Simulated scan of single mutants.
Amino acid sequence: MINLKNPTITELINKVGNQIYYGPFSGLKIPEILFDQLTVPEVLGLYESCLFETWGKIAGKAMENIMIIGGHTGYYSASMSYLLQPKNNYTFETNLSLHHFISAWFSTNDLVSPKLYGAATEVIFKNWEDRIDLIICDCEGEEMNLLNPNQFQWQKATDIVVEIHPFYKEKALGELISRFKQTHQVNIIYDDFDEDTKITKILSGLGLQKLKYDKHPTHRWIHQKGKKMFTSGIFLYLDKL
């Protein structure tokens, strides 16, 4: 979900030196065309901070080939390349109009350009030949079609971090665990509801305590049957055995 234009977000970005402020992606430069696209947690580096421990574990592994399913505006695509320095980054994003945002991160930070694709499909994955060491997946329910080691054999040797969308797909969590438990160590991760406390402390220190942003638990929501339904984050880290 793209952030509505917020004039004070530019002030925040300028105060932290036009770069991610904190966390494993600290120092990643923010392209100017992303100034009104990013959220406050993303700029501060606290976005989905529940995954920090996971990123630390992954950083200690050899991740030469990574795949991002659901590139959006490039936050994770660029952050993973910045952190892991892979040889190849394959990023899938269905909305082609967002591809220039993804590319901007890489040119701004002098990172090796990703190989950009449109929608990830089962056909593409059935014919995939390159080794993939890591998948980061956030694709609004399509993870049930795209993550299946029985159908896509190469995924048996791949570490996977996926946001689960049980609000789109019933029994999604249990089904994915069942598919991968023979080849991967399963780790379930939940949203960190203390994230707002950390963000508030930093904003206060920067003199931006009045800066508005979507806080837990209302920062995650979907439209369902014509209504705005609030959700919570559930992630799986599937660590290959």
Score class of each variant (00 low, 15 high):
135 I>A: 04
138 D>P: 00
93 E>F: 02
39 T>D: 10
111 L>H: 07
112 V>G: 02
217 P>Q: 10
33 I>H: 13
103 S>I: 06
145 N>L: 15
49 S>I: 08
113 S>Y: 11
85 Q>H: 14
213 Y>T: 02
44 L>G: 04
129 E>K: 15
128 W>N: 05
24 P>V: 04
12 L>I: 01
37 Q>A: 11
7 P>K: 10
125 F>Y: 11
30 I>M: 02
208 L>R: 04
45 G>I: 05
147 L>H: 01
139 C>A: 08
197 T>Y: 11
52 F>K: 07
205 G>P: 04
170 E>R: 15
145 N>D: 13
211 L>M: 14
191 D>M: 09
42 E>N: 08
19 Q>L: 04
92 F>N: 03
235 F>D: 03
99 H>N: 07
125 F>D: 06
216 H>A: 13
241 L>R: 14
4 L>K: 14
93 E>T: 06
70 G>V: 00
208 L>H: 05
55 W>T: 02
99 H>C: 08
209 Q>H: 11
105 W>H: 01
177 I>M: 09
65 N>T: 01
187 N>D: 09
223 H>D: 12
186 V>H: 07
90 Y>H: 10
124 I>G: 00
35 F>H: 11
89 N>M: 15
110 D>R: 13
41 P>G: 06
112 V>A: 07
1 M>N: 10
66 I>P: 01
134 L>Q: 03
86 P>H: 09
214 D>P: 07
157 A>Q: 14
177 I>R: 02
78 A>K: 01
206 L>T: 03
53 E>S: 15
58 I>V: 14
146 L>G: 05
4 L>G: 07
151 Q>L: 14
225 K>E: 15
225 K>S: 14
102 I>A: 01
125 F>E: 09
189 I>S: 05
226 G>A: 06
217 P>T: 08
5 K>N: 12
91 T>Y: 03
149 P>K: 03
171 K>A: 11
204 S>R: 13
31 P>V: 05
13 I>Q: 03
177 I>S: 03
156 K>S: 10
21 Y>A: 15
211 L>A: 00
